[in-house]
Computed example of a mutant assay.
Amino acid sequence: MERKYHMKIAFIGLGNMGGGMAANLVKAGHEVRAFDLSEDALAAAKEAGCGTFGTAKEACAEAEAVVSMLPNGAIVKQVYWDDVIGHAPEGAIMLDCSTIDVATAREVIEVTEAHNYQMVDAPVSGGIAAANGGTLTFMVGGTEEAFKRAEPILNAMGKAVIHAGDAGAGQTAKICNNMLLAITMIGTAEAMKMAEKLGLDPQKFYEISSQSSGYNWSLNAYTPLPGVGVESPADNGYAGGFATPLMVKDLRLAMEAAETADAAVPLGSRAASLYEDFLGAGNEALDFSAIIKTY
């Protein structure tokens, strides 16, 4: 008996995040038509139950929805201009889950809508473990109608799907959120190391601050010091989690957006500078919480 699928979904970009996301769409009962430039990524997608294709154009043919998870805005534009528009059936819903600049997100949505598609920008928060576990948070920009079409697809890959506003609002929420994350991680690292140097046991500091006004996600849910607080990448040599180059990418996007909007971000700017220095010191393989090592 032929298997019946909920939807035919093209998935373009099967990296650390995209591979797990595509696998969760399969688990939700969708027919996933996967494409990536990496043969290893395609093999892993096939193992997870995806159909694999030699080109993005082929993956998009017959697709009712297209999900993309790509490295940057230039690649997003290239893929949509060359491989998606005119190749996916008219009326398909597009979901770009990449983290890119706000202006490019708005441009791609405008052009796809002019070609009789609907589209949302839907960047994610949660990292590789959440992508694999289907517990991502999606921040979504686009029309109410496009959001309602995209929502059930995103629900199959995440625990929270939030309509942030019009086109580009998802990217705005993502870069502002991650700028705040960078600031709080640096502040947490400074406070923990200062307490330690003043003779306070780090675990005691965690127990006190995590239940008082110093409470924050970087301390409580992602403690950057090994053996203290919750289990985190710090307890695994700062492997896994949210890699430093990805944080630097998001902070660069945040600084570009701040300049465009004439927004004052002195702490964000300082955090961006500190993470640029940390990356430049050869820490590209480490989780962003490893910045505590500089103290």
Rank of each mutant, 00 (worst) to 15 (best):
A92G: 04
A23K: 06
A44E: 01
A103M: 05
C60T: 14
P224I: 12
V265T: 14
G86I: 07
A285E: 04
K8L: 09
N72C: 15
E110K: 13
A271E: 02
E145Y: 06
N236L: 06
A88L: 05
A61N: 01
R270K: 03
I162H: 10
T112Y: 10
L286F: 12
G49Y: 05
V140N: 12
P71H: 11
F11D: 12
T137E: 02
T112K: 11
N24Q: 13
G29A: 08
I75R: 01
K77T: 11
A105L: 11
K204N: 10
Y206D: 05
A105K: 14
F147N: 07
V228N: 08
D36Q: 04
G133Q: 06
M255W: 11
G229N: 07
I292C: 07
A56I: 03
G29E: 07
R106L: 06
P152T: 07
A65T: 13
Q203G: 12
G91N: 05
W81P: 00
E39F: 05
A285W: 04
G214A: 13
G134R: 05
G134V: 10
P224Y: 14
G241S: 00
V67H: 05
N220P: 09
T244F: 01
N16R: 06
V265L: 09
K46Q: 09
A92V: 01
A169L: 08
E196D: 05
Y80D: 00
T143F: 08
W81G: 01
S38D: 00
L154C: 13
A285D: 11
R149C: 07
N72L: 15
N236D: 02
P226L: 06
T184D: 01
L267A: 10
G127Q: 12
N24Y: 13
L14R: 03
L198H: 02
T143I: 04
T188Q: 04
M119V: 13
A74K: 15
E276W: 03
